[in-house]
Design a protein around this nucleic acid. Structure first.
Lengths: 342, 342
DNA sequence: GTGAAAGCGCTAACAC
DNA sequence: GTGTTAGCGCTTTCAC
C-alpha cells in the first residue's frame, strides 16, 4: 500500500539498512558514500517515501505516547460545559507532552470502566493518573502498574513514595480562603465536600481547614465539616436550616455552583446571607451568578509538571520518585462579602 | 521485560500460536483441546500475561487511533479559557471515537507547524481536519493525504467531493439570527469577520447573510460586511464611528467578545446602542458581559458525526464520500434587545 | 489438534 | 562503505 524502505532501497539499488542510515542522520556514524546517499535521497523523494513511525517505534519499543488514566467507575471527562477542571488539566498535560515530543492519547479503554488491561498493553510509554478516587480496586491497579506512572492530586506519602506525585498546596490554599473570609469579618465558616466518603484530597483539605481555623482561634466542630451526596443531596436541608455559618468553602466548582443554584430558590441570598468560596477557579467561575470567588488550583501547572516528572521517569534507568507541591492562588469575585454589610 | 506470548507458551508447553488462538477467541475456528486451552489460560494468569496491543496492531496494520489535524500556522488549541469552541468539538470527537473503539491522539507533530510528515507515518488509521484555513499549502497537504480523512467545516464541493465532510447549516443559522433581530425591529444589520481574507466558512456565512438579508428586503451594501484584524484591529474605529447599524452578527465568540469588551470603553452600550449576536454559543457566552446571544453551532454533533464518517471511510474498501449538514440553533441571552426600547 | 514458517517496517550488531 | 542476519510481539497460512 504505502511506500516502504524496501521500495526506496530497490529504487536506489541498495539494501533497506542503507536507506535507514541515510535517511535518519546516522550517515556519519556508519559511513555511506555521498553518491549512494544522494541516490537514496532521490529515490525517497521520487517515491514519496515517508518513514513509518509506528514501525520504527515498535522496533525501538517506544511509543512516545502518554495515556491519561482515571479511576474505575468514573465517566468520561467532558470539556464542553460545567467546570473547566478537566480542560485546564488537559491543557497542562498536552502542553507538557508536546514540549517533550510526546503525544497524548485519550483511549476508550484507559478512560473506560476497566482500564487495567489497557495500562500495560504496550501502547503507552507512561501514564498520568488524575483521579483521587483511591478505592482498593484502584490502589491495586496502580500498585501493579508496570508502566511509568505519575499521580496528580496525590500526596508524597501515597504508595510509600513509589510514584512521583504533583499536588497543589491545599493547606496554603485553604488558608488563603480563610484569611480572605476573616478579613471580611467571618468567623463561622464551614467546609463542604461531596460523596459518601471524603476523597483523599478532600481529607487533606478537611485537615487543612481544621488546622487553619484552629490557628486563628476560629470555631471548629463536628458541624463545621459538611457532606452532600453526589447529586448535591442534603444541600437544600442545610441551606434552609438555621445554620450558624456565615461563609462556606466548597470542595470544588460543581459543589459551589449547586449552592449558588439552590440558595435563591430557598430564599437564601449569596453573598448577603452566606459567602461562598469555591475551589479550582477556572473560567467557569465567571459563568456563575454571582461570579464565584475561589481558591485557584494551578491545574495547568499540575498537568505540565506531571509530564515533566513522567518524562523523567520514562527516561531514567532507576528513577527516583519526586514530589511536587504547587502553591494555590485566590481569586476574589462576587460570591463573598463582608459580614453584616447589608 | 514484560511477559510475552512466548513466555506463556513455554510455561504451558505449547507454541505461541496456540496461546494466540486460545486467548483471542479463535479457539472455535482453529480447534484447540480443552485441556490445552485450560493449561494456556492458567499459564497466562499465573504469569500475569497481558496481550501487547501495540504489537498486535502493528501486525494487523491498524492502530485504532484517530489523529486531530489542523492547518499550518495555527497554534495549539486551548481548552482552558476563552471560547469553548475546541472543547466542544473535542467532546464530540472523543465521544464518537470511543463509541467506535478508537483512541484520539493529540500529536505534537500533527498539531504543529509541519503536520505533513506525521499525516501518513503509520500511526493514524484516520484523521479529522477541523481548520477552515484552506491555504494553497494546506490544500496540497490534504489532497495528498493517503490516510482516511474527514473535513469538519467544509462544504460538499470541497476538493470535488473527494472527502467526507460535516458542516453546520450556516445559511439557516444566519437566518435564525436575522429573524431574531428583525423580530426585535432591527433593519440595519452587519456581519463581521476576522483576518485578512474571509476563511472558507466566513465566505459561506457572508453569502448566507447577503441572501437572508435580501430575502427580507433588508438593506445590504458594501458596508454591511465588516472586517477586523486577527487582534480585533479596526473594531474601535468602527464602534466609535457614526455607523448606521443597530445590530451586528459576529463570526465567532472571540470576535463578539472583543466587541463586548471594547464597546463600553468607547461609550457604546450593548445592547442599548447596538445588539450583538455571536456564533457558536458555547458555555463561554455566559461568561461575557452582557451574556452573549448567539447562533448555536452544534460542535459536539459535528465532531461526533465526523467520526462516524471517518470510521465509515476507514472500514469501507471503496468508500463513497458523504456530506452532512447539521442545523444550527439559536440561544437568546442578553446582548440583543428591541430597537428603540430604551 | 498442534506446530513451523513467514512477515508487518524498521534498525542494531556484526560481517566483509 | 555496504550487506547479512536477526528480531521487536503478534497472527495468518499451511503443513502435519
Amino acid at each position: 500500500m504505502s511506500v516502504t524502505m524496501r521500495d526506496v532501497a530497490a529504487e536506489a539499488g541498495v539494501t533497506p539498512v542503507v536507506v535507514s542510515r541515510v535517511l535518519h542522520n546516522k550517515a556519519q556514524a556508519v559511513r555511506v558514500s555521498d553518491k549512494t546517499a544522494e541516490r537514496v535521497r532521490e529515490a525517497a523523494i521520487k517515491l514519496g517515501y515517508n518513514c513509518n513511525v509506528w514501525a520504527r517505534n515498535f522496533r525501538s519499543q517506544e511509543t512516545f505516547t502518554i495515556g491519561v488514566l482515571h479511576g474505575v467507575g468514573f465517566s468520561r471527562p467532558m470539556f464542553d460545559r460545567g467546570s473547566r477542571y478537566f480542560a485546564s488539566l488537559m491543557d497542562g498535560i498536552v502542553e507538557g507532552a508536546f514540549r517533550h515530543g510526546y503525544s497524548v492519547n485519550l483511549c476508550p479503554r484507559l478512560l473506560g470502566q476497566h482500564p487495567e488491561s489497557a495500562i500495560s498493553d504496550g501502547r503507552f510509554d507512561g501514564l498520568v493518573w488524575y483521579s483521587n478516587n483511591y478505592t482498593a480496586e484502584n490502589r491495586a491497579m496502580l500498585l501493579q502498574c508496570p508502566v511509568p506512572l505519575v499521580l496528580i492530586h496525590a500526596p508524597e506519602q501515597m504508595f510509600e513514595g513509589k510514584f512521583s506525585t504533583v499536588i497543589c498546596d491545599n493547606h496554603q490554599g485553604i488558608g488563603l480562603a480563610i484569611e480572605h473570609l476573616v478579613h471580611l469579618g467571618h468567623r463561622q465558616i464551614s467546609f463542604i465536600y461531596e460523596g459518601d466518603q471524603p476523597s483523599l484530597e478532600s481529607q487533606i483539605r478537611i485537615e487543612a481547614f481544621k488546622r487553619q481555623m484552629a490557628e486563628r482561634s476560629l470555631p471548629v466542630s463536628e458541624t463545621s465539616i459538611l457532606r452532600t451526596g453526589w447529586g448535591g443531596e442534603g444541600l437544600d436541608e442545610y441551606l434552609s436550616s438555621r445554620h450558624l455559618h456565615t461563609a462556606i468553602i466548597a470542595n470544588n466548582e460543581w459543589l459551589a455552583s449547586e449552592i449558588l443554584l439552590r440558595a435563591p430558590r430557598l430564599g437564601v441570598r449569596v453573598p448577603e446571607d452566606i459567602s461562598v468560596v469555591g475551589f479550582d477557579s477556572t473560567a467557569y467561575c465567571n459563568e456563575l451568578q454571582p461570579k464565584l470567588t475561589a481558591i485557584f488550583q494551578p491545574l495547568v501547572a499540575l498537568g505540565n509538571s506531571a509530564i515533566d516528572l513522567l518524562v523523567d521517569t520514562i527516561k531514567a534507568d532507576a528513577p527516583t520518585p519526586r514530589h511536587l507541591v504547587i502553591p494555590c492562588g485566590f481569586d476574589i469575585r462576587n460570591s463573598t462579602q463582608p459580614i453584616n454589610s447589608e
